[in-house]
Design a protein around this nucleic acid. Structure first.
Lengths: 333, 333
DNA sequence: TTGTAGGCGTTATCAG
DNA sequence: CTGATAACGCCTACAA
């Protein structure tokens, strides 16, 4: 069933059918109705490929995420999809993992699909976990399509970034821990991403300002997994009185470890997580965590995406969103 | 940059370029190399729309999920995406929510995109939460493209289903609870989906076999959310000595409620969750939960999808996968 | 092994 | 307001 069939059955030309399809105002009501009726009867839907071939927009946005089974990424994708769908856009989703070559390959594949724009979710695309790798591949991709980074910050033409103020929050939280008498603060992170680096920098700055020498054994790079965190602590038994983790699962691991060994939380140990995920509510006591305002970040990103696509007006390249701290049972205040 | 440009720069015809593109064996090594070199230099990528227009396959599969921020669905999507990507297929992801009209609209939109096949994730698409709604819309969609249901069971042409044996597991678990002396077993569910119904049926059958009259106030339909479960229990204070929940978040809510009120788990209260999510590991004690073998279900689905697309051989329409129970700290054995 | 030409289903540009 | 007709970029007989 194509435009010719519809044209024939309606007794008009394909040009007229096309006009009806695209809601052109230069069609008489009568003709329009007639054609629409036939289209409905035949359950006709225009072929996107033919459309894409002549037209410009594909009404599709590519979204790349390292791991969709990660709760944070999944929430981001859900929010993005909702906004795109509202505007009748489709989402091509790809999961790249964290390895540099994979990331590049997935970006290449997405670009081949003639998407209108591309969104990269997660700060792993900004800095990199494998230090040798830089952001050149992103800048190259941006030459083909507008690129949107969620929680990344790459300053280049056609790249639009939205990120949270992780440095400031991290600095502030660590300071508060220190004010509360903590001085052996365990820093747990699972990556060397742009955002992880900012969190670490804030943590270190707070120590420095307080004149506390950083203890290397308290800065740990582990996997963001509850049980692996517990195992890590049991093997290395670091001596700490507070913990600041860059993701909730690690923080939950610390809490579990503490409960197992009879350490009182938050009396003798303060724990702070990040991302304010459902995990933070699963534990008793509940976990204090940083809400990085993902919804606002995603909304901002999609809004700017459509601004760029519509091409009217200046669109700022960098936007920062303020995190908030959700106080719960694993810290005093 | 199109096939004509490449042809010209390589000094061959577009047909030859096309052959190189499609890895045809009827091209001399020499020509092939020459053309490939030009393509690489020009950073040429074929236009998918032109391809889709002539060819049959679009190398794209539509995946529909009610809510990607749900951990279970997100894991499924991750697994599916990985398998599709391995075969160089793209994934068009859409999130429909749970309302009937929305589901239908999303299916319609996906179908318009000329996908090769469609995967519906979650048993919400099989039965329905809004009872009046049936599976007719799915059968209709299946007339256009092969449809794959993950955790659904609709018996119709061109619909392929993979589901877990929820009834048997539920029956068995409830029986064990009864054997352990429990007789006021709280059943918590968040939907009327196909899979939820099977779980409930197993629960009821076990009670019946043991000659225990079901207590209406112990069969509760609530939202799958930790805090809402706690609130529900505090408002309704049901009298129960065991709980079987159709998803982990509700089970965690029960555990949290128990801890808050000083109920000893598992001594005075047994709790069983479902889906074996990360939440099950976050609590102390850890949550006993049913592992529904999502990975196997997804793998099976994608394997059969490619069998159907390749068109060779008979492909079974229904496949059942056996769940396992992961014993942890909220049950005795 | 390579080239030519027709077709895929739209949109857009002209004439009428 | 409506209708022909030329792109759009690729695939694939069919010819050479």
């Amino acid at each position: 069933m194509n435009i010719y069939d519809i044209a024939e059955k309606s007794g008009v030309s394909i040009a007229t059918v096309s006009r009806v399809l695209n809601d052109s105002d230069k069609v008489s009501e009568k003709t329009k109705e007639k054609v629409m009726k036939v289209m409905a009867e035949e359950d006709y839907t225009p072929n996107v490929f033919a459309r894409g071939l002549s037209g410009e927009s594909t009404h599709t946005v590519g979204v790349l995420v390292p791991d969709i089974s990660d709760n944070y990424m999944a929430r981001a994708v859900a929010l993005i999809e909702r906004r795109l769908h509202e505007k009748d856009y489709n989402m091509l989703l790809s999961c790249s993992g964290f390895r540099a070559e994979e990331k590049e390959e997935h970006i290449r594949m997405l670009l081949e699909e003639r998407i209108d724009a591309m969104i990269l979710v997660g700060s792993t695309y900004a800095g990199s976990d494998t230090k040798s790798h830089n952001t050149g591949y992103i800048e190259k991709a941006a030459q083909k399509k507008p690129l949107f980074l969620i929680n990344g910050d790459v300053d280049a033409e056609n790249i639009f970034c939205t990120f949270s103020n992780d440095y400031a929050v991290s600095l502030d939280l660590t300071k508060k821990l220190i004010e509360n008498g903590r001085n052996r603060i365990l820093f747990l992170t699972d990556s060397e991403s742009y955002s992880a680096k900012k969190k670490k920098a804030g943590y270190e700055k707070a120590l420095e300002e307080a004149g506390i020498a950083p203890i290397p054994s308290l800065i740990c790079h582990i996997r963001n997994n509850i049980d692996e965190t517990v195992s890590y602590l049991e093997e290395n038994h670091p001596d700490f009185d507070a913990c600041f983790a860059t993701d909730d699962a690690m923080a939950v691991g610390v809490l579990k470890y503490a409960m197992k060994h009879g350490v009182s939380v938050p009396k003798d140990l303060s724990i702070i997580g990040y991302n304010n995920s459902e995990l933070a509510l699963a534990t008793t006591p509940e976990l204090t965590s940083v809400d990085n305002k993902l919804e606002k970040i995603c909304d901002d990103t999609v809004i700017r995406l459509f601004s760029v696509l519509s091409g009217n007006g200046f669109v700022p390249r960098r936007t920062s969103v303020a995190c908030t701290v959700v106080q719960r049972g694993t810290t005093n205040h």
